[in-house]
């Protein structure tokens, strides 16, 4: 069975990529506007992950017990492999592959991830700039936690809500725009419903949402904010990253550094996502939003696995308290 999402009235695949997709999917002729999700109980591709095409295209096809999912490079998607319970994050830069060693129910998650990946990029079509960042509300304004999938946005966002009383508005994506010269950020809004709708339409079973990383009780996302987002100033942006070098000394906040202006702008730009990353307009919009983020406090966190999320959130809260 092949599901074909025709969500866009613009080309998101190049002709070269289409040829590759055609080879992957065997029996269909994909169009420039299609996003393809093949769902078969009898996959014909060989075992194991298969990298199709040139490596730097970042095109991955993974055979799984319940299907094959082909994803394209410029946007980056989460790929779920139910057979081994592994989740891969496919980035435009294939050097950034994060492996989540978590077990999960696959079906709905795959669709959720695909639909989320597509829908969260839609605002770029009308000039807004989607950001891959969790959005929290503090008494002073909005705080963002940015970073690649699996880095801990949800985990830290949940803990900041539980332990420090911040309000979690979205644990994965938000939308930035500039209105009247001012930066405005709102939660992506409606994604929960959109994801559920997509899963229901495809008659897939499984949990409604993929769940919270540490398996504890989730803090409810502030639903009212999704319907009618209020304007608040953006006061801080934390860039999360993983330090591969194991460090034993975390007695201070030394793994947190404040970015200077040009690095803040550069780093903020990496948070933006879009459908067509090559377009002049998207790059322009991204730059101007990133420049606005350069005006606020930007911090880079490089933590390793020896640090507990609780400790990291405490440090975030301390740093945040210092700037306010």
């Amino acid at each position: 069975m092949l599901y074909c999402y025709r969500l866009f009235d613009r080309h998101i695949f190049s002709s070269h990529e289409l040829k590759l997709l055609h080879r992957v999917t065997h029996d269909i002729e994909p169009g420039h506007r299609d996003v393809l999700l093949e769902w078969s109980s009898d996959p014909v591709l060989p075992e194991g992950p298969l990298c199709a095409g040139r490596e730097n295209w970042g095109i991955f096809v993974l055979r799984a017990a319940e299907g094959v999912w082909a994803v394209l490079p410029r946007t980056g998607f989460v790929v779920w492999v139910p057979k081994c319970g592994t989740r891969l994050t496919v980035h435009p830069d294939v050097n950034q592959l994060a492996v989540h060693e978590t077990m999960a129910l696959p079906c709905r998650d795959v669709v959720n991830s695909l639909v989320t990946g597509l829908l969260s990029r839609l605002p770029s079509m009308w000039g807004d700039v989607p950001l891959h960042a969790a959005l929290l509300k503090t008494p002073e304004g909005y705080v963002l936690l940015a970073g690649m999938s699996g880095i801990g946005k949800s985990t830290l966002g949940q803990l900041l809500a539980r332990r420090h009383g911040w309000i979690l508005l979205d644990d994965d994506a938000c939308v930035a725009s500039i209105t009247g010269g001012e930066l405005k950020v709102i939660p992506m809004g409606g994604m929960t419903r959109l994801r559920a709708d997509a899963a229901n339409r495809m008659q897939l079973s499984g949990p409604l949402l993929s769940g919270y990383a540490d398996g504890k009780v989730m803090v409810q996302v502030e639903q009212s904010a999704l319907c009618l987002p209020e304007w608040r100033p953006v006061v801080a942006l934390f860039h999360l990253s993983r330090n591969n070098e194991h460090s034993t000394n975390h007695s201070s906040n030394s793994y947190i550094s404040r970015l200077d202006t040009v690095n803040a702008v550069t780093q903020a730009a990496t948070t933006a996502i879009g459908l067509d990353r090559e377009s002049f307009q998207w790059r322009t919009n991204r730059f101007h939003v990133a420049a606005q983020f350069g005006k606020i406090a930007n911090f880079l966190l490089r933590y390793d696995q020896s640090q507990t999320p609780e400790a990291v959130t405490d440090d975030i809260e301390n740093i945040y308290a210092e700037i306010h």
Binding site: T261, V262, V265, F287, G294, K295
Partner: peptide, 10 residues
């Protein structure tokens, strides 16, 4: 593209 950010020109 250019923007004035905290007194700097980026």
């Amino acid at each position: 593209l250019h923007a004035e950010v905290n007194g700097s020109l980026i």
